[in-house]
Each structure stands twice: as C-alpha cells, then as structure tokens.
Write a protein that binds this DNA or RNA. Structure first.
Lengths: 199, 199, 199, 199
DNA sequence: AATGAATGAGCATTCATTCAT
DNA sequence: TATGAATGAATGCTCATTCAT
C-alpha cells in the first residue's frame, strides 16, 4: 500500500471515529483499529491527535469544496447556483453522516482546541455562498442592499442547523427535496404572505 | 452564603470556564477556583462534571427563555415578534459571550457526552420561533406554505452562525443593528431583487 | 442522653458498619448515620477513625473477657473450663456476627493500621486459654509437655477459623454443639484412633 | 523481558507491598516502583487493583498447593502426611513472610472487597487437610467420629494463628520444629495427661 | 516503514476532619 | 454539646506519545 493510501485510510477512519465518539472521547487506538494499522503507525503520518482532526477538516472539506465548485461551474444562474449549493450540501450531509457530525460538532471546537488554527478550507467553502450572492447582485438578481458577508452565514447557518437535527433527532425528518424547497422559498422570497392584505 | 447562591456561583463559574477552555479541557479545580470554593464543595451541589454542564444548559437557557418570552408577551405583531427574538438573542449572545460559546459549542456535543440527555430547555427556546411563525400564519401575515418546523431551524441557524463568528473571528463585525436589519430583510422579503426585471 | 451513652452508641454503630463494609470502606458518615448523630459529633468522642476501631476492640473484647471470665469463675475443672471457653466464644461469635467479623478481619490488620497499638484486651482474652492450660497442668490433668503459649494459639486459632467460615460461607454449617464436641474431642484426646491396631 | 516475567514481577512486588502496607494503604505507584515498571504498565497485565490482589492469591497460593501436594505424594502414612503439611506450611510462612501476611490479613477481607470472588485456590489448599484425614479414617488411623470438615479448619486455624504471631509479635518465638512437635502432639494425641490418674 | 509494549503526566472524585454557627 | 457545610489532600486509572525491535 502506498503512503498516500494509508494516510487516506487513517483520515477516513478518524472521521468515522470522531463522528461516533467525539474528538475527546476518541482514542488513538480506536482510530488505529478502525484503520487497521498499529497505534504507532499513525504517528508516521500525523504529528498528534489534533493534527489528525485538522487533516480531517482540510481534506474532507477540501473534497466538498471541489465537488460543489465543480457542480456550480456549469450553471450560470445565481438563483439556481444557490439551490445547487444547498442541494449538494444537504445531500452530502445526509449521505456522509460521519462527516456531517464532525463538521457540525468538532469543527466548532477546533478554534479552542488548536491554537492558531484557521479553518481555511471551511472559510473557502462558505465563501462559495457569498461569491454566488455577489454574482447575483452584479446581475441585479439579488438585492444590492444584502450584505454577502451576513447572507452567507445566514444561508449556511440555516442549512447547518437543519442538517444537524438529522444526525441527532428522532423527530420526523423532512426530505432533502422538501427542505431545499422551503429554504429556497424563504431565502429567495421571504416568509411574508405577499398575497394577503395584511402585508 | 445560602446554598442557592453557591449553586449559582458555581454555575456561572462553570459557564465561564467551559467557554474559555471547553468542557473537556476544563478542570474541576478551574471551576472551583473561579467560583472561589474548594474542589470538593462542587460535589455538594452537583453529581459530577457532566451534571454541571447540564445544569449550565438548563439554567442559563432557562433564563434566556424566560427573558425572551417576557419581551414577546407585550408585542402582538408576528413580524415584530420575530425581530424581537432576533434582537434579544443576538444582544444576549454579544453581551454574554461565555454563554454564547457554551451554547454554540458545548451544547452541540452534549448528546454525545451525556447519554439520555435531551436539551429540553433548548428545544423550548427554539420552539418560540415556530410558535411565532404559526401565529403569523393564522393571521395570514406569514405564508401558509412555510413549514414552521423547518423555518424555525433556518431562522435560529442563521442567527447562531452569525453570532458564532463574533466569538471567534477577527473579521470586522457587523453591529447587532445591521445584522438584525439584514436578517429580517432576508427572512421577511427574501434576497431577490423584486424591483429588477431579472426577477 | 449522657455522654457515656452516646459514646457507646457510636461504638455499637461502628461495630456494625465495620463488620458490614470493613474498616477502609466504612465512612465516618455511615457510622454517624447508623448512630443517629452528626458526623462532627463523632469527633467529640473519638480522636479519629482509627481511634474508633481501637475503642471497638477494647470495649467489645473487654466485654467478652468479662463475660467469659465470669462464666469460668464458677467452674473448677480445667477440662470443663476449656469447653466453657469454646462454648462461650462460639456462641457469642454466632450471636454477634458483627463483632465476629470485626475480630476476625479488622483486628488482623490493626497492627498495620495503627502504629504502636497493642491489642491488650485481645491478648488478655487469649491468655484466658493459657491460664486454663497451666491450671490443668498443675493439676496433672493436662500434659506437662504441652506449651501453653503454643496451645493457646492452636486452640483459639481452631475456634476462630471455624467461626470465620460461619460469617462467609454458604456451606452447611455445623451447629455450635457439634462443633464444640469435635473441638474438645480433638484437643483433649487427639484424632488418632486408639482402638485400632494401626496405632 | 517476556510478558510472563513482567506479570510475575508485578505479582511479587504486589505481594511485598500488600504485606507491608496492606491492600488499602498500598498505592499502585508503590507496586510499580517496587516492580520497576511504570504505573500504566501494571494495567497492561491487570484490570485493576483488586485484580492484582486476586492474582496474588491465586498464583501464590496455587504455588503453595503445588509444592505441598508434591511433597505429600511420596508419603503414604496419614500421620506423617499431616506433619508434612504442617511443616511445609509453617516453613513457607516463615520463609515468605510477605505471603504469610497477605494470606493472614488480606485474604480475610477479600470476600468483602471483591464481590463474587471465591478463594478457590485457598479452599483447595485447606482441603488437602481434610483429604488426608479422610484417608487416615479409611485406614483406621484416624478416628471415624472426627468430621474432616471441622478438623481441617481446626488444624489450619491452629497453624495460621501460630504463624500469624510470627509476623507481628515481639514475643520469643518457638522454632518451627518445636511448633510442629506441639501441634502434632495436640492433634494426634490431645492435651490430656493419659498417664495421670486424674484422667 | 510498521509495530505495539511501555511510559507517566494528568484529573475526577472521595471522604476524614474542621469549625462557624 | 451538637451540627453539617466546607475543605483539600490523596489516588486509581486512562491514553497520547515514544521507541526498541
């Protein structure tokens, strides 16, 4: 097996273990077992436990960025682009629940865990949204008074909170399609009933 | 000092320490020091470290629920109510950064940390939003095709993600007022430029 | 309640608790609860936890010595005396299982627990046996070549080991009467079959 | 060093430390230091502190059983067998005072310390005595009315109490030979003076 | 490169004892 | 005398990391 393969195997094992137990309750030996390597082998590929977590973020989210960017590249309409982002994100969060949990939970604490770590890939991921909005504003499709820096967080936060519940809740889940539909409705047109005299 | 005072003193100390170090890196002795009691004293008021965290959630969020509910009770208009919720939430998150961090970070992992713990108070808090939306729908102010169960998460997620950045970011922050303005704009009217021919 | 009564109440409570949990697993608060006094009250009557244990030994065994001595005083025959000792001892061990456990288990570790503690009362108790043997030797009832210092331990050890099993075993127990019968048979006449040609 | 060696090294270190300080006052770090391993290493070989104690019992007493059984196998005479048992036991208790203390003191509390622990090896050891007595009864060397279940305890208890004093006492000790002589005299022939008219 | 036995720092929790009331 | 809340020292055990093989 090549070094890159083993590196990757450990990353995937770690994602799974972090998702299941959380970073702090995950033991190196759990990851080693899951990756079918010896404990010590992990230290040939990573400096320490934090380094594994950072690598999970960078590589898994890097892969997300890549896939989403690719999907968006063929679509010119900013309205559709936003929908594609939402769809891709939610679909992947639903498909890869381990990654979803790691992003929703462990990523949050990363700043506290690891001094001087900036989630560069994560910023890059969220900035896809603001880029879309800016493009839409240039095309006069999105309102000029919307601040992309706030809107990107509102949009991502909405998606994130919804998908977060999927991991933990026993509530009846809405389907991805229903959810996208609602999210796009809210963000594009708002929740006011414009057909009513009350508004 | 009365028992209730000491209980409360420990809760506040714990909130501060959890916010600064995170649950796992927080030592009981840190909390004891912060609360100016002996380590052992903590165990006269709490069963264990997890119990402290749960109590922080329940009591601090319980207090949030109370304050927000009170503010909302005097306002009949669902549009204003949503704005009041957002304002109250963001203001408190900005004022009490320790609590903000604990909610944004530690609350997320709580399900994994503590078996059989349901964040009842937290659910109660978020349900304030869906209640407002339902009221608005009854009054035909909010669109009937909005699902309150999704919208509440989208709205809360948006607020949460925005306030989360306040705790960790070095980016230029938008003011609470600007943020509220943007959030209400997005949620009430959406981001589409309805004055443009493009829509 | 007089001080002496409270002292005594604590001793009895301690005997019970030490018997049930052992000295190290017994908490002062267990003893206090059992004696129906506050934890701090115990320290008005005893210096520390060890002091309670020593007092249990001294007072409970002192009471044993007294009772046994009294019973023996009316019997002149050394053969009967030995039997009375055995009967009294086993009867009391069976009746007062808490005391039995404390003597069999906790007394053993006392030397290690408490520096400079000599079980004076316990020595006194065992010396009752050697005194009986010496009297019997003077009366030419017991063999002159028996060393009382060894015989007293052999006799007490035999009784102790037998009664020890009563506290812990699920085996069918022999009755006190059967046991006395056997012990006296062994110690007085030995186990050899003197009617057989084989001896 | 092989794993078995390290296991054994820890057992011996633990025996020494338990003997010196008693189970509860013995710290894991004491045992580790004595065994010249790190604290954590102990947990590679034992589950917990109790497990070390049980292992000491099982292995050290197992070794006793083995040695005694071997010595007995070459001797057909039940009278000699009993003497061999006593000699072997007392010799080993005198030689290995640490083991002696652990058996005399810690073994007693083991039932209270460790739920569901049956001292199987210890029972096996004591049953050597009753087996000898039964054989002697079959050969009409030992009286038929002696109950082996009581006699085994009386015999062992006598030996145990005598050797117990060796560990703790400052009294002039009798030699092993003297002691064996007395014990065999008492158990085989009793303490009555059969040459006197008084009996 | 790979292994996994060994290390030892680190921490939650307990409980004997004190002392203000 | 009596109380019991408060104290804080003490320790079994875990697990990230190392390193001899």
């Amino acid at each position: 097996m090549k070094a890159a393969d083993k590196h990757s195997k450990i990353i995937h094992a770690a994602t799974k273990v972090f998702a299941k137990k959380g970073f702090f309750n995950a033991r190196i030996s759990d990851i080693a077992k899951e990756a079918k390597v010896a404990d010590g082998t992990i230290y040939l590929y990573f400096n320490n436990k934090f380094d594994i977590l950072i690598s999970v973020f960078e590589e898994e989210i890097g892969s997300l960025v890549e896939q989403v960017t690719k999907s968006l590249s063929v679509e010119p309409d900013p309205r559709k682009k936003l929908e594609i982002f939402a769809t891709k994100h939610l679909t992947m969060m639903k498909k890869n629940k381990n990654l979803a949990e790691v992003i929703q939970i462990e990523l949050r604490q990363s700043a506290k865990l690891i001094k001087d770590y900036r989630n560069n890939k994560f910023s890059e991921y969220i900035d896809i949204i603001s880029t879309i909005i800016k493009q839409g504003q240039e095309q006069h499709i999105y309102r000029a008074d919307i601040k992309p820096g706030i809107a990107k967080r509102a949009f991502f936060g909405a998606l994130d909170e919804i998908s977060r519940v999927w991991s933990i809740s026993l509530e009846t889940e809405y389907s991805v399609a229903d959810t996208i539909n609602q999210i796009m409705m809210i963000f594009l047109s708002g929740i006011l009933d414009t057909t009513s005299q009350n508004n």
